[in-house]
């Protein structure tokens, strides 16, 4: 009786310890780590964006909708951070996206850049939590201050190591109106992430 009871207690304690130690492995970091470091999404059935679409006049973005991943957010204006990197939206509840104001406005010729958090610390998911799930051809709508909606279609979704951030591909000149959506992704490193998720999109049309 006594040895049996001791064994039961030991087994219970061991099981408790194993549960406690093993819990950390099943988090979202593991899920994110499974994302390929450089992924090209499978082609979707959606039509590719038109090759030549007339550019939209300059007007700052005030809203962003991405129906495929449930994003509908106001858009802030962002500049440069003190360390020379692109400024990011403040870490707070009800996270919002931000337009990098030194880039063209969405719909103008060139790469317009919009940034958003994947997670905002204790507040949970960021506005771009599911950005990596976008697929080629899916629609992005940018509401401009002048009442125009600039409509884009995703052309590529890439996850790249921050150490190898493709500055030229993101901020370099292009021959048509394009859009870049940027957030973080990949494995966690301390209180941040190892990679960036970058969505490339091209203007398909505009509507008022």
């Amino acid at each position: 009786m006594r040895p049996l009871a001791g064994r039961v207690l030991a087994a219970t304690a061991l099981a408790a310890l194993l549960v406690g130690c093993g819990g950390g492995g099943g988090n979202s970091a593991g899920h994110l780590a499974s994302t390929p470091s450089s992924s090209a999404p499978p082609p979707s059935s959606a039509p590719p964006p038109a090759k030549s679409v007339a550019a939209v006049g300059r007007s700052v973005p005030v809203g962003l909708r991405i129906p495929a991943i449930g994003v509908d957010t106001p858009v802030l204006r962002l500049g440069l951070a003190a360390d020379g990197t692109a400024q990011v939206p403040p870490v707070q509840a009800h996270d919002r996206a931000g337009w990098y104001r030194h880039s063209p406005t969405p719909g103008q010729k060139g790469p317009s850049v919009i940034l958003g958090h994947v997670t905002v610390g204790a507040y949970g998911d960021g506005v771009f939590r599911h950005l990596k799930d976008l697929r080629r051809g899916e629609r992005i709508e940018v509401r401009l201050e002048n009442g125009t909606d600039a409509l884009f279609a995703v052309t590529d979704v890439r996850t790249v190591a921050k150490a190898d951030f493709p500055t030229k591909e993101v901020y370099g000149d292009v021959g048509r109106p394009e859009l870049r959506l940027i957030t973080c992704g990949g494995a966690r490193t301390g209180d941040g992430y190892r990679d960036n998720v970058i969505v490339f999109a091209a203007l398909t049309s505009a509507r008022r």
């Binding site: 020379g84 030194h102 997670t119 960021g126 940027i182 209180d191 941040g192």
Partner: peptide
């Protein structure tokens, strides 16, 4: 087209 190009990668995630 981007008048001021940022350096490095943006920190768009706080775990």
């Amino acid at each position: 087209q981007v008048s001021v190009v940022p350096s490095g990668a943006p920190n768009t995630g706080v775990a």
